[in-house]
Structure formats: structure tokens, C-alpha cells
Design a protein around this nucleic acid. Structure first.
Length: 646
RNA sequence: GCUGAAGUAGCUCAGUGGUAGAGCAGCGGUUUCGUAAACCGCAGGUCGUGGGUUCAACUCCCACCUUCAGCUCCA
């Protein structure tokens, strides 16, 4: 028997008989490891535990804590679900059933049958039943013709369509129990580790993600090696719902969405407006420090402006339709601020000495999002960008990108938010979606990557995520339910300067085109605040808190003193409210705790006679008595620091 | 836009064909109280909208609107 050499992650290696499986290797190391093993990584590729290894390889045993292990676990769970569905609903056609970030799904064509909550429960129960049978996941290689005839017999058009693209290749099947699937794997050895199962939801999904195709039913599920982990996961899901900005936005009176105004058109309530104005002030100051000039532009513009920019043909469907005047003139609600700013750049001849010109505006724009797309403050039809356009000479470009990225990072650091950075490139297979020629794109993409590398940014690349006029550096954040959203963005644009014939006179006396950087650190104030509500779970840092302190007299005998306190607070710029309701102190405290107000100032006989306030901190409790001046100084200090803690 | 689910008081929710309910919030009163819910009372609804079936519809049927989950899209 031929020997092969297996190298482990710690660098040690050992010889095995050729054809040894990952499971056998794990068993050779320890029983415990074999029990926990879910899959193996062979030369960087995730394999089944039962697959024979026939050549020298670097090998890692994958357990639940490894992504590859989870991947195999959930992939196998998807098959288990499919097996359950097939046994309960014979004749179901199967689309695809992959693992996802958390859990898995399977797309199903069930003809006329629409899945109900009871169906889901039945499928779940059947999965539990099947999992206890410890069926093996068996990998089988077949030639292409065999595979086609198998699915022809099964009358599954989806698998046949998938096979069309694998023509001529060796096809792998996986069997588990009575269920057989076209699948590249990898899978668990048996169904045994799948102990805790929960089917979460059913939703429609287009076959292969295209609107033109039939819509299938997609079941989302999640499984775990034990019920404890499942319970923890379900608990976290509930926690996330408690943080949902739509719920908190209503409870804390931050914003209002009403059909009376229209979908995706939020109204800012007084408390929300305080948050928003503080954010705007923060960024206005930071931008002024960095040499930005503020401008203001109207909400509508002549349609021709967007024909010049090229936005109109590219994004016609996602804009509100033009307003047509009796004389035939047409206006657009502005979907972006750039064309307006380009006009301001062009107000006079520019010299290289003027550059960079940095024009900033908190500009409100309108986009016609599809009706199913609106989502609280996070996806809206009218929103305000913290927009700016930097017009610079080419040799200034990288410095300007660097400083805009630094500004964006400062923003997220101020809020203690973790962001992922994506370099958004164009999709070379789909060039008609983009403006400008290939050379511009190549150059711009190289430039942002150079900056990202020089700044040692931790980034990933998103093909096809560029805007139509240039590549971007995007800052992505997750919401409470784990959906990722783009917030800040920095974009390089060589296209608009051409279209708008933007120029400056260089030191050589000749006309040159500037390069434009489009950038928005928050992205949209609406989305940013939506994410911020979830990030802080409604417990805003003091500088943003709509109400910073509530003054609570013990009884109405101390109302006079309380009035004095509140007047002094307001005078010192503390956002304070007076709770003069005829209620017991415990009631008032509970109420202001639920409103997540950072401080409560309790005043009674003690405080009145010593000219102090008793400070109670949100979620922490009584801090004891403090002079009024000391409290004001404390608030001023925390606000000045933009402290994240009280 | 597509698929599915849901819409009852300001909020959270109960109500399966026979006169619309509760808790909280609000308002009035009593109480004057020391760190997460005092007590009594009052008021509050075109049951999303419109049509239909029925002696009778919150309840059954149809259409539309809105919201939610997902898909598609996303400057």
C-alpha cells in the first residue's frame, strides 16, 4: 500500500496509507477529536471526512468553531431539510440549497402548494426524526450523461439547468437516506451531529436570482450541534429585534413614517432632530477644519442637467418621474447633488492655485426605491447626504483620498462602530453599465487600491459594486438583524469632469481636467441615524442624547427648587426636562429609565437645604449628591469629549 | 416590482357570524411620598380602505392600500 505524507497545521507530519480518510486520521489522534470533527481542510479545500486522501497533503481537522466546519454542517442541514421536504411533499423540485452566514436555505418548487407555518413545523419535526437515523452522507462521482439522465427521470428542470453549465465535467452526487442531490459538497459524515434544528421563515426567491425567472419558495433554517447554542441564537435574534431602530425610533419619538406623507419619507420628531443637528454640527466643524466650503443647492433641477451628467439614462427607473411644465420644460427632483456642485465649480475660471476645491453640502436627494425596498430609516426615498465634491489636480488625488478616508474613519471611531471596508470595482463583463473608458477605470481602481494599501486598510474587493462613473471605497456596517448596509463612501471620478467640461489652468498655462472625489462619511443621515439607534440600542452618548437630564422633585413641595435647578441647567446648555407630575419618585425613575435618559436629578429636602442635586445615572443607579455646578461641569466635559460612556 | 405574512384605542395585544375588550400611556381627582409601576374615576375605535355574501360581518369572499420577512434593485 502506497504511503502518503500528511502535514498538520502545527507543522508536524505523519505518513498514512494512501486512501486514508480525514475521519480515520482524526480517530488516530484522539476519540474526542473524531467526535468533534465535522470536515477536513485538504490543501486549503474543505473535504468530507469520509473522502479518501490519495496524495501528500496539508490537513486541518475542522470543528464547529471553524468556518469550514460550520459550512459543511449547514450544507448538510440543507440536505437534511430537502430530504424531509421530499418525504413529506413528493414531487417537489429542488433549486439550490447552500449554507449562508448563519444557517442555510433551500429553494423549492412545490407547484401549487404554498408552504404554511404548520408545514414548516412538520418539516422541522421530520428533520429531527431523520437526523436520529444517523444516515451517512455518501459522495459519488458520476459522468455527466448519467447525471443528466438521473434528473431527467426525476423531472427536475432546475438541476438539469445547473448541469448544463457543468457539461463534460465529472459530476458529484451526495446521498443521504432516501435523498440524492447534485452537489459539490462537502458534507458531514452522518446526520448525527445535527441535534438542534429550527426552521425560521419561508420567502419567495427568484430562480437564479433573476426577476425574469420563476419565483421559488425558499425556506431559511438554522441548526446547531446542541440545543443550548440554538437557544442562545434565538435569544440573540430576540435581542436584535429589541434594538430595531423602527421600534426604538417610535418608542423614543425620534422619527415618524406615515402613509399620510408617503412611504420612505421620514418625518423628524423634535427628539430626533436634536440627534440629527448634533451630527450635522459635528461634521460641519470637522469639514471646515479640513478646508471644505459649504454651499447650498435647490431640490429640483432642469432635466437636461442629468442628461449631461449621464444619470438620467442610467438611473431613469429609480428616480421620481420628471415634472413637466406647461411650456414643456422638465424638472427632476434631484437624485444626487453632484451636478449642482459641478456648476458651482464652473462659476469662474479655476487656477491650479485654487485646487483642491472642496464643496460640501448636507444635500437632500430623492430616489424612487421599489416599494418592497423601503426599510425604516435605512432605505428611504428622500434622504440627506453629508455630501462633498473635491476637485483636485491629478497629483493631489491620492492625498485627498487619504484625508477623506481618515475623516470617514474618525467618524466611525467617534461612535465606536466597527466597519468593513470594500473596494468597489466595476464588473468587466458588464462594461455597458459604466461610463468612461477602460483606461480611466483601470487607473482609478489602481489608485484607490494604492491608497488602501498605503493606509494599511483591512479591505475586501467587491466586483460590480462601483458606481457608474467610478470605483469606490465603501464603509459597510451591519444592522441589528445582521443585514449589511453601506454608510460612508469615497469615490473617484474621471467621467463627470469630461461630461461637464470642467477645467483649471495649470502652471504651464494650459487647460487641464480636474479629478473629482465624491465622498460622504455618514453616507445618508437617515441611514446613519438608523444604524446609530441600533448600535447604541437607543442609549445615546451624552452629546447626542435628546434629553440629557430629567429633574425629578420628590414631591411638589420641592417644585420651586426643582424649577431653579432646571433653569440653571438650561442656562448652562444642558438639555433637561422637568418632571412635575404628581407621582411617586419610583414611578418617575422607572419612566425616565425606560426613556433611556442618561441622568436623573432627584431633588428633595436634603438637596434643597444643601443646594445640591442627587444624580442617578441610567442603568447604573444613584451616584449620590453633587453640587449643581459640579454636575454641569461633568456634563460639559462628557459632551466636549463626545464620550461614549457616562 | 415579485412571493408570503400581517393590519382592532397613542402603544402592546385579546376577540371564529349576534350591541367592540384589557393592560400601559393620556385626562380629572385623592395621596405629598427618597431611587424601576400608589389608589379611584373619565375619556379614547369608520376594527387599513372600498365592494360583495348574509336577517346580521372585526369575523366569510373579492379588489386596493400600508407594514413586515425575503427576492430583485441600489447613484
Amino acid at each position: 500500500m502506497a504511503k502518503i505524507k500528511i502535514t498538520f497545521p502545527d507543522g508536524n507530519s505523519k505518513d498514512y496509507d494512501s486512501g486514508v480518510t480525514g475521519l480515520q486520521i482524526a480517530e488516530g489522534i484522539s476519540k474526542g477529536l473524531a467526535r468533534e470533527a465535522l470536515a477536513v481542510e485538504v490543501n486549503g479545500e474543505v473535504w468530507d471526512l469520509n473522502r479518501k486522501i490519495t496524495a501528500d497533503a496539508a490537513l486541518k481537522i475542522l470543528k464547529w468553531k471553524d468556518d469550514g466546519g460550520k459550512y459543511a454542517f449547514w450544507h448538510s442541514s440543507a440536505h437534511l431539510m430537502a430530504a424531509a421536504v421530499e418525504s413529506l411533499f413528493p414531487g417537489t423540485k429542488f433549486g439550490i440549497g447552500p449554507p449562508i452566514e448563519v444557517g442555510f436555505y433551500y429553494d423549492l418548487d412545490m407547484g401549487d402548494h404554498t408552504l404554511t407555518g404548520e408545514d414548516l413545523k412538520k418539516i422541522e419535526d421530520r428533520m429531527v426524526e431523520l437526523s436520529t437515523k444517523n444516515d451517512q452522507y455518501v459522495r459519488e462521482e458520476r459522468n455527466w450523461e448519467d447525471a443528466v439522465s438521473y434528473f431527467k427521470e426525476k423531472k427536475d428542470p432546475y438541476k438539469l439547468e445547473l448541469l448544463e453549465e457543468l457539461k463534460g465535467q465529472v459530476i458529484t452526487f451526495y446521498h443521504s437516506g432516501a435523498f440524492t442531490d447534485l452537489c459539490y459538497g462537502p458534507h458531514l459524515a452522518t446526520t448525527a451531529p445535527i441535534k438542534a434544528i429550527k426552521l425560521l421563515s419561508v420567502a419567495g426567491a427568484y430562480w437564479r436570482g433573476s426577476e425574469k425567472n420563476k419565483m421559488l419558495q425558499r425556506i431559511y433554517g438554522v441548526t446547531f450541534p446542541n440545543t443550548k447554542e440554538l437557544d442562545e441564537y434565538l435569544f440573540r435574534l430576540e435581542e436584535a429585534k429589541r434594538r430595531d431602530h423602527r421600534k426604538l425610533g417610535q418608542e423614543l419619538e425620534i422619527f415618524l413614517l406615515t402613509p399620510a406623507v408617503g412611504g420612505g419619507l421620514p418625518l423628524w420628531l423634535p427628539k430626533g432632530t436634536i440627534i440629527r443637528e448634533n451630527l450635522v454640527d459635528f461634521l460641519r466643524i470637522e469639514q471646515k477644519k479640513r478646508g471644505y466650503d459649504f454651499v447650498m443647492t435647490p431640490h429640483i433641477a432642469n432635466l437636461d442637467l442629468y442628461k449631461t451628467s449621464g444619470h438620467y439614462p442610467y438611473y431613469k427607473d429609480s428616480q421620481f418621474p420628471p415634472i413637466t411644465m406647461p411650456d414643456g420644460e422638465q424638472y427632476m427632483l434631484k437624485p444626487m447633488n453632484c451636478p449642482h456642485h459641478h456648476q458651482i465649480y464652473s462659476v469662474k475660471p479655476r487656477s491650479y492655485r485654487d485646487l483642491p476645491v472642496r464643496l460640501a453640502e448636507f444635500g437632500t436627494v430623492y430616489r424612487y426605491e421599489q416599494s418592497g425596498e423601503m426599510n425604516g430609516l435605512i432605505r428611504v426615498r428622500g434622504f440627506t447626504q453629508d455630501d462633498a465634491h473635491i476637485y483636485c489636480a491629478h497629483d493631489q488625488l491620492k492625498d485627498e483620498i487619504t484625508s477623506t478616508v481618515e475623516l470617514t474613519q474618525l467618524v466611525f471611531k467617534t461612535f465606536g462602530m466597527e466597519v468593513k471596508i470594500r473596494l468597489s470595482y466595476r464588473d468587466d463583463k458588464n462594461v455597458e453599465k459604466y461610463g468612461g473608458d477602460a483606461a480611466f477605470w483601470e487607473q482609478a481602481q489602481r489608485e484607490i487600491k494604492e491608497v488602501a494599501d498605503e493606509m494599511k486598510l483591512d479591505y475586501f474587493i467587491g466586483i460590480g459594486e462601483a458606481s457608474f462613473y467610478g470605483p469606490k471605497i465603501d464603509f459597510m456596517v451591519k444592522d441589528a438583524l445582521g443585514r449589511t448596509w453601506q454608510l460612508g463612501t469615497v469615490q473617484v471620478d474621471y467621467v463627470m469632469p469630461e461630461r461637464f467640461q470642467l477645467e483649471y489652468t495649470a502652471s504651464d498655462g494650459k487647460k487641464h481636467r480636474p479629478v473629482i472625489i465624491h465622498r460622504a462619511p455618514f453616507g445618508s443621515l437617515e441611514r446613519f441615524i438608523g444604524i446609530l439607534i441600533e448600535h447604541f440600542a437607543g442609549e445615546f452618548p451624552l452629546w447626542l442624547a435628546p434629553v440629557q437630564a430629567a429633574v425629578l422633585p420628590i414631591t411638589d413641595q420641592y417644585a420651586e427648587y426643582a424649577k431653579e435647578v432646571i433653569a440653571q441647567m438650561k442656562d448652562a446648555g444642558v438639555r433637561a426636562e422637568f418632571d412635575d407630575r404628581n407621582e411617586k419618585i419610583g414611578y418617575k425613575i422607572r419612566d425616565w429609565e425606560l426613556k433611556k435618559v442618561p441622568y436623573m436629578l432627584v431633588v428633595g429636602e436634603k438637596e434643597k437645604s444643601s443646594n445640591t442635586v442627587s444624580v442617578r445615572q441610567h442603568k447604573k443607579g444613584d451616584l449620590g449628591a453633587m453640587s449643581r455646578e459640579a454636575f454641569i461641569a461633568k456634563v460639559a466635559d462628557l459632551v466636549h469629549q463626545k464620550s461614549l460612556t457616562l
